[in-house]
Each structure stands twice: as structure tokens, then as C-alpha cells.
Write a protein that binds this DNA or RNA. Structure first.
Length: 511
RNA sequence: GGCGGUGUAGCUCAGUCGGUUAGAGCAUGCGGCUCAUAUCCGCAGUGUCCGGGGUUCAAGUCCCUGCACCGCCA
């Protein structure tokens, strides 16, 4: 089984923000999860570098456009490296191989008769070098230059998108979880109730030359969305090689809700017109709403991902993203909420459970994994709950229900904390005749922690690795597919545990 | 203006097909433990389920309507 996970290619007119980081972390967690299942995964992200707004941003920055896009694209890449994003390919739309693919698709659609030449009229501001919609104007004037726009007509190329409206509607109806969650599927269907307009896919070069030339008319460059969406094909080496046929059937796009229309309507109809199969899933998420509360004094703007990870840690931020937001819905972002998650879930629940369990193993058993005796009811319950947690996790995670998947892990963590109280190992340690009982309890704790580490690996790769090291897990119990790891009792008695610093230090109240 | 979404504890939210006394986490209060990162465990709560009307033996849930906020489209 193969799977191809993509983020949007990010538009380089601005630096990465929280929303970009969320999409990318979700994609990464999914990619890591599927790799852990033993599937072949291709994971792609990158940057979108053509179009008017990029040109404007470069001008404002006082840089030649190529230098500008190199710089911002580099910042995105560094940001992802700083979030442990395990992308396989990083695509840039200014790369020669991408330009070739776009021209190839354009030529193909042109030859099939789905691209035609026609008039395009609108209100144009010469100062901005762009068209405006009525509603974008302020008292009928360009909001930047405060001049009256000129009504002009120009000839352009159009993609005959309307031809595929019925096909698209039928396809969505026949494939209920093609666009998910359902609310976004409904939104696209609602949009398709109205007649679909054809899509203008060119810009005259005299007005904008920062784009990919149309292969059939050198006086025009390609509209930026038509160019950008095709990156998903470029990344698989389309049309040559074996990667495209191998990975495309398992393609899953991840996007935020603001770009639902290009991905839910333009893209599938473009694929259809080019004679290609649709992707497998379009996964759509909501927005982080910035709460009104004051941001930390230490930062001008904490929503910058690199500042967040520097302050709170990579895994802490990744965990917060996946735990706090219900995929598809909006969620609130605040530093207070992030800190609360870190202290309550990571430091107090998981971190402390890990510390007290290993602490007892060192204090009572010299840091060696003891051999368990015959399990009693309480021990059997621990093993049973571990199985439940794993089954739920494997069900929820690929369905993008990260919040539920993690909630289940934390129920197990809480259960282990209660198990410790119920068994009171410190009492067992005082009674020599209870030595076997203490061994059994310690073993169940450590084995439970091994399961937790295995499941959390896609979400918090660095912390999970630390857990595995402190648990003394070798390759045979770590770098293996999940189904191989999730068998109760695989932790080997006699294994030497390792001491380490606190996994998730508690954040003290701000001074 | 059209279409859609949301409104549940102090805060953030879950609530399946209409079915017992509406739940979780955080925050708060009290008690317990000492292995642990002042952590953990137990107990205690607090509700006009946005307002109004309707259907039903039964409504947070379904229907109508009003209000507030949000999104998409024009």
C-alpha cells in the first residue's frame, strides 16, 4: 500500500505563520503514522512562487524577484526543519521540471479542446496592474491608489471548467468521504448548485511576466492557480517514471478551508480534462482564531512558528496542534491554552508518569526491567486497556481525528497513574514476600509506557525517541512497524533502563 | 441579499438513532498518598443546553421563528 501526502505549496508573499505550521504538522504526523504502519509514503511540501502578489512583495522588499522568492522559500524550509517535518520532496514552482509539467498539461488540455480564447472584461487599476471586483473598491476607487479604475477588455485563455460540472457533482455524490470532513463536501456541493463559470487561466505578458509561458501562445503566462495545483503531479515526476502510477492512487491533499474552491473544484476538473484520475482525499481543516488575550512580552508576535518552538519546544507545539483542534473545525489559539496543555497533559500526566515509573524501577530494581509474575485482575486490566487504546488510535488517526486519538492515549495514561496508586509499589517494596508482586506491577507500567511511546511517535517524534532510549528499547522494539510493536509483553525482562532529564519540564507561572 | 455553520458548566469543548439523573478537560474547594517534574489519587460541585413557539408518551437532539457570532457566494 502506498500513500502520497501533500501540503499546499505556500505562497511566498509572506513568511510562515501558525496556519501554515498547523497544516504542515498534520501532514507530517500523518506521513509518519503511515510509515509506522509499514506503508510506502511520499510526503511533499513546497512553495508557490509566481503571480502578481509575489512580484509586489519583492518590490516592497527591494529585492529582485528571484532573490526574494529564494529567500522566503528558504525561510519556509528552515521553519519545517525546525518542526521536525519529514518531507520527502520540497517543490518550488520556479523549478524547471515544474515548468515543463505545467506546459505539458496545458498542451494536453489545449489539444483536447478544453481551452479556448475569449474576452475578459473588468475594472483595472493601472497603478496596481490588476483587476478589481466592485466590492473590493472603496467608494468606487482603487483602495491603494484612490483612483477610478478603468473598465477594460482583454483577450485571454479560458479553461472549459463548466463542461465538468456534472461529472464533478456526480463524483462527489458517489464518493462520500472524498472531501472530508463532511461540512466541506457540502460546501462544494452547494457551490456546484450554481452554474460553474469557465476559468480564466492566462495573464497577458505585457501586464505580468512573472509566470509560466503558455506553450501555445508566448504572449501569455499561466494563471497562478493553474500553475500551482500541478505541483502535486510534478512532485511525482509526472509523466515519466514509476512514482506517478505508484503514488497517485493514494494521493491525499491537506489544505485549510480558504483554498477549498481551487482544490475542490479547479483541481479535480483540471485532472479530469487532462485525462487523469482524481486524488483519493481532500482533507480540509479550519482556522486558528487568535484570542484577544495579550501575547507574551518576550515576543513581538508569538504566532511565528519558529518563535513558538523556541519558547515551548517542537513536540510541545506539535502535540498542542493535534490535541487542541478538532480537525475541520476552527479552534482558539492562545499561549495560555498552550501552556495549560503542556503543564497538564505533558508535564503532569505523561512526563510525571514516566518519571515516577522509571524512578521506581531504579529505586527498587536497579534500573532493570523485572520479569512479571502471574498477572492479577488489575494487571490484566492494564493490558486490556492498552489494546483498546491502540485499536482506537489506529482507527481515529488515519481518519484525521487526532484529538480523539490522543484523548484515548491520555485516558490510558490516567489509568496507569491510578494503577500505581491502587498497587502502591512503595508498600510492596517494604515487604520482602511481595517482591514478585512488585516485579509484575513495575513490568506492566514499563510495558504500558512502551505502548504509549510507540503510538505518540508520529505526533512527538523527538520525545518518543527519548522515551524509547530511557526504556532501553533496541531496534527490535522501536524501528519496526506498529503491528509488530503492539503486542503485550514484548518488553524484555533484564533490559537496562536509562536515566534521563524530565521529558516535559513544567512551565512555571510567568513572572 | 442568497446559502451554510455555530450558540451546552467560570473557560475550552464532547454529546451517536429523540430515551433514565446532560458529560470531559482546565480552573476552584476539601481530603488522601509519598514512587514521582509541588506531581498523583479520591470527593464536591455549580447548567434558563441562546430566546420564543411547535411535534412527541418523551426534545440539548426533530420542525418553525427570532437574536448573536462566523464562513462562502453575490
Amino acid at each position: 500500500m502506498t500513500i502520497y501526502i501533500t501540503t499546499p505549496i505556500y505562497y511566498v508573499n509572506a513568511e510562515p505563520h501558525l496556519g501554515h505550521a498547523y497544516t504542515t504538522v498534520v501532514a507530517d504526523a500523518l506521513a509518519r503514522f503511515h510509515r509506522l504502519l509499514g506503508e510506502e509514503v511520499r510526503f511533499q511540501t513546497g512553495t508557490d512562487e509566481h503571480g502578481e502578489k509575489v512580484l509586489e512583495a519583492a518590490r516592497e522588499a527591494g529585492l529582485p524577484v528571484k532573490d526574494f522568492v529564494d529567500r522566503i522559500s528558504g525561510i519556509f524550509r528552515q521553519t519545517w526543519d525546525g518542526l521536525d517535518i519529514s518531507y520527502d520532496t520540497y517543490i518550488r514552482t520556479t523549478a524547471p521540471e515544474h515548468i515543463k509539467v505545467v506546459q505539458e498539461i496545458l498542451a494536453r488540455v489545449y489539444e483536447s479542446g478544453d481551452i479556448y480564447f475569449g474576452d475578459y472584461g473588468g475594472l483595472y487599476c493601472f497603478g496596481c496592474e490588476r483587476f478589481y471586483l466592485e466590492r473590493e473598491l472603496v467608494e468606487g476607487r482603487c483602495p491603494d491608489h484612490l483612483v477610478l479604475p478603468t473598465a477594460i477588455k482583454e483577450e485571454n485563455y479560458f479553461f472549459r471548467m463548466s463542461r465538468y460540472q456534472d461529472w464533478l457533482k456526480d463524483y462527489i455524490k458517489a464518493h462520500p468521504d472524498w472531501i472530508r470532513p463532511e461540512r466541506y463536501r457540502n460546501e462544494v456541493l452547494a457551490f456546484l448548485k450554481e452554474p460553474l463559470e469557465d476559468l480564466c487561466i492566462s495573464r497577458p505578458k505585457r501586464r505580468l511576466d512573472w509566470g509560466i509561458p503558455l506553450p501555445f501562445d508566448g504572449n501569455y503566462v499561466t494563471y497562478v492557480w493553474f500553475d500551482a495545483l500541478i505541483n502535486y503531479l510534478t512532485g511525482l515526476g509526472y509523466p515519466k517514471g514509476s512514482d506517478f502510477p505508484k503514488y497517485w492512487p493514494g494521493a491525499q491533499h491537506l489544505i485549510a478551508k480558504d483554498i477549498l474552491k481551487p482544490h475542490g473544484i479547479y483541481w479535480p476538473t483540471m485532472l479530469k480534462a487532462a485525462g487523469l484520475e482524481p486524488f483519493q482525499h481532500l482533507n480540509v481543516h479550519g482556522y486558528w482564531q487568535m484570542s484577544q488575550g495579550k501575547m507574551s512580552k518576550s515576543l513581538g508576535n508569538v504566532v511565528e512558528p519558529r518563535s513558538l518552538t523556541a519558547l515551548y519546544g517542537i513536540d510541545q507545539v506539535r502535540f498542542f496542534f493535534l490535541r487542541e483542534m478538532v480537525f475541520g473545525l476552527d479552534a482558539n489559539f492562545s499561549e495560555a491554552a498552550l501552556k495549560a496543555r503542556i503543564n497538564a497533559d505533558l508535564a503532569n500526566d505523561l512526563g510525571n508518569l514516566f518519571a515516577r515509573s522509571l524512578g521506581m524501577a531504579f529505586k527498587y530494581r536497579q534500573g532493570l526491567v523485572p520479569a512479571p509474575g502471574t498477572p492479577q485482575a488489575l494487571d490484566q486490566e492494564v493490558a486490556g486497556r492498552a489494546q483498546e487504546m491502540a485499536a482506537d488510535f489506529l482507527h481515529y488517526f488515519p481518519a484525521l481525528e487526532f484529538s480523539k486519538a490522543l484523548h484515548g492515549v491520555w485516558e490510558f495514561i490516567n489509568h496507569l497513574n491510578r494503577y500505581i496508586v491502587a498497587c502502591a509499589p512503595w508498600e510492596l517494596a517494604k515487604a520482602p514476600q511481595e517482591a514478585g508482586r512488585l516485579d509484575t506491577v513495575l513490568y506492566h507500567l514499563l510495558e504500558g509506557l512502551r505502548w504509549i511511546a510507540a503510538l505518540l511517535r508520529p505526533v512527538m517524534p523527538g520525545s518518543a525517541l527519548k522515551m524509547s532510549e530511557q526504556l532501553g528499547l533496541g531496534l527490535a522494539l522501536w524501528d519496526q512497524p506498529l503491528p509488530h510493536l503492539l503486542k503485550w509483553g514484548r518488553l524484555t525482562p533484564g533490559t537496562q533502563l536509562q536515566k534521563g532529564p524530565a521529558l516535559f519540564p513544567r512551565l512555571e507561572a510567568e513572572g
